[in-house]
């Protein structure tokens, strides 16, 4: 495979991405999701099984996410075509006595549920299951109107602040370390009164440990590329005070909209590319086999 990051497809289809937290997808409900520009409907049956399909009815192209889950089926809102959990159409209300064609099937994507998330793979999964990272609880999914690479740079260099009243801690000094025993890269940022250790745990996943006034806390960031120029952040942490963590995330997202921070972010992103030209794309996106 190529060693030049620029030749990697920006959005690699071969890895698992989290799309919704397990706790956020109750039985009998669905969620529209965009992953790498693909529109998906993710739904959980009454029995608890999570599925991810193309958000498009094979009949007339209507988005299934405006339909409804009924027991183990998903119903399209346009003509009531009803799809079983294997995605084959089992009922066409216009023709109650007629068995639906086998061609009437929604497009199914590999789906797995692990570690508090529903994971989807758009291509052939390179591993049977997404890599687990026990010990963190899924708290919040937030959408960022920034390119994925900028959000990676932000989480790698700016610590979350649990005391949201303070000014954002921009990095003053950055030290990068490439680990010898694998593709992961550790990185350290020191700001005036805060420190951050951030490390790629796996493609698209960053473990962070922040220190503020002598107190340490850690969190886990999983990234989901959505549409070009934006992404979703699935944030987890081991603590019990979910409210503080959520507020820190909101503050972090809002800070990135400040023009002066946005420009610093571009510097950080370039710095990341300079320091890790070969591995960066793989670390962010996962590498194609």
């Amino acid at each position: 495979m190529s060693s030049d990051a620029s030749t990697l497809t920006l959005r690699n289809p071969w890895s698992w991405y989290p799309v919704v937290a397990t706790k956020d997808l109750e039985r009998g409900t669905l969620a529209p999701v965009v992953l790498n520009g693909e529109r998906l409907v993710v739904w959980r049956s009454a029995a608890g099984r999570a599925s991810a399909w193309s958000d498009r009815c094979p009949h007339r192209g209507m988005r299934l996410s405006f339909g409804a889950v009924h027991q183990e089926t998903l119903i399209c809102p346009y003509h009531g075509w009803t799809f079983a959990d294997d995605a084959y159409c089992v009922r066409i209300p216009a023709h109650p006595g007629v068995a639906p064609s086998r061609a009437a099937r929604a497009r199914v994507y590999p789906t797995a549920e692990a570690d508090g998330y529903v994971w989807v793979c758009l291509g052939e999964p390179s591993t049977a299951a997404p890599s687990a990272q026990p010990g963190y609880r899924a708290v919040r999914t937030l959408h960022f109107s920034h390119p994925l690479e900028d959000v990676v740079a932000a989480f790698m260099t700016i610590p979350l602040q649990l005391e949201t009243g303070r000014a954002v801690s921009l990095p003053t000094e950055i030290e990068w370390t490439r680990k010898a025993d694998g593709p992961s890269v550790a990185e350290r940022t020191i700001a005036s009164s805060a420190a951050l250790w951030a490390e790629f745990e796996a493609p698209g996943m960053i473990v962070c440990e922040a220190r503020r006034d002598g107190e340490n806390f850690s969190y886990f960031i999983r990234l989901q590329p959505t549409e070009s120029g934006s992404c979703a952040v699935h944030a987890a942490w081991p603590g019990s005070d979910s409210l503080s963590f959520n507020r820190a995330l909101i503050r972090f997202r809002n800070d990135l909209q400040q023009p002066e921070i946005a420009s610093r972010l571009r510097d950080m992103r370039h710095k990341l590319h300079e320091l890790m030209p070969v591995h960066l794309a793989g670390l962010i996106q996962g590498e194609a086999p």
């Binding site: 009949h59 007339r60 066409i92 216009a94 023709h95 007629v98 064609s101 009437a104």
Partner: peptide, 9 residues
């Protein structure tokens, strides 16, 4: 006709 699967109606 391959793009969107029709039925009798």
């Amino acid at each position: 006709p391959r793009r969107e699967i029709p039925t009798i109606s």
